[in-house]
Simulated assay, not measured.
Amino acid sequence: MSDTSLHSVAPAATRGAEPELKDYFALLKPRVMSLVVFTALVGLLVAPTPVHPFLIFTSVLFIALGGGASGALNMWWDADIDRIMRRTQKRPIPAGKVSEGEALGLGLALSGLAVMMLALSANIVAGALLAFTIFFYVVVYTMWLKRWTPQNIVIGGAAGAFPPMIGWAVATGGVSVESVLMFALIFIWTPPHFWALALFMKSDYDEAKVPMLTVTHGHDATRRHILAYTVLLAVTSLGLAFTSIGGPAYLACALVMNFRFLVGAWKIWKRDTAQAEADAYGEEKRFFKLSLWYLFAHFTALLVDAALRSFGFWGGFS
């Protein structure tokens, strides 16, 4: 089913009482925004160029607003399938708390404000990267890839990987090997993270006609892809340890977390659908939860090594 037909047949939710502030805040996808803020802040703080605390605060604020704007525009466009999927039915638009027009207006207004203010307060490169991130997430991923190809989350994952590059650009005014590798870490982490979720939420994507890999190629193929991407992720993760922002804390974290991640991916790969269903997809759910800690641990370790260098305890591996 095409985007147009989905948008035309999905019933609109009945508008209830006047929306509250929390309903508009929910449009910004605060959980996703927290990841955007955290990784952008790390990219900014581990950069070699010191940044004034006020600029750090304002830059992270505008990056957060840009991430929130992307979320609002995503919910505006995906309102039809959000009404179908159990996981998203309580979002503000399908729940009838906020109209699609309000979500569109909020998303566009915040996008313009965030990009303009980041470019003016930090630099043009950071502002341009933020603008491209919003465009990529809303147009390339949400409007095009998500409903067209099972590689949607692979290519679309780039949108969530840009924040540390933006933070780095705020501090340095450019792009470097370190910022590209931080991007790559999130980019390659995204597919196994979401495919694990899709394994135990397959019916949602199936009913909404979203061509997630579990729907188009089945569970066995998805498990093989998770293992392959986890191996690639381990290599990328360890490579970052040997750059100017790496150090003993990050290397130790990468070794431990990648070992656990590889073991989890291996366990998922060895299972078949009958075993997974008998276990209520326990291994898949554990892998998904571990994936959340995986990214947080890696970026926290980068901060620890940056602190060690600032106090003269460590100069880095590079």
Results as ranks from 00 to 15, higher is better:
P94A: 13
P94K: 11
P94I: 07
P94W: 08
A95D: 09
G96V: 02
G96T: 01
K97S: 11
K97V: 02
V98D: 04
S99K: 14
S99N: 06
E100T: 05
E100F: 00
E100W: 00
G101I: 08
G101V: 07
E102M: 00
E102P: 00
E102Y: 00
A103Y: 00
A103P: 00
L104I: 11
L104M: 14
L104H: 11
G105W: 07
G105I: 06
G105M: 05
L106D: 07
L106T: 14
L106G: 11
L108P: 07
L108R: 11
L108H: 12
A109N: 01
A109C: 04
L110Y: 08
L110T: 04
S111G: 08
S111I: 06
G112Y: 04
L113T: 14
A114V: 05
A114P: 03
A114S: 11
V115R: 14
V115F: 14
M116V: 10
M116L: 13
L118N: 12
L118Q: 12
A119C: 09
A119M: 11
A119P: 02
S121E: 07
S121H: 05
A122Y: 15
A122D: 15
A122C: 15
A122M: 15
A122E: 15
N123T: 06
N123S: 06
N123P: 02
I124G: 04
I124T: 13
V125C: 15
A126K: 08
A126C: 07
G127F: 13
A128Y: 04
A128V: 09
L129N: 12
L129T: 10
L130A: 12
L130N: 13
L130H: 13
L130T: 10
A131V: 13
A131S: 14
A131E: 14
A131I: 12
A131Q: 14
F132K: 07
F132L: 14
F132V: 14
F132S: 10
T133F: 00
T133D: 04
I134C: 02
I134A: 02
I134P: 01
F135N: 05
F135A: 08
F135D: 03
F136E: 06
F136V: 04
F136D: 06
F136C: 06
F136H: 12
F136W: 14
Y137R: 06
Y137Q: 06
Y137P: 01
Y137F: 08
V138L: 09
V138K: 09
V139P: 03
V139H: 09
V140R: 01
Y141D: 01
Y141C: 00
Y141N: 00
M143F: 05
M143N: 07
W144I: 07
W144S: 04
W144E: 01
W144P: 00
L145S: 07
L145Q: 08
L145R: 09
L145P: 01
K146R: 07
R147A: 08
R147W: 03
R147E: 07
R147S: 10
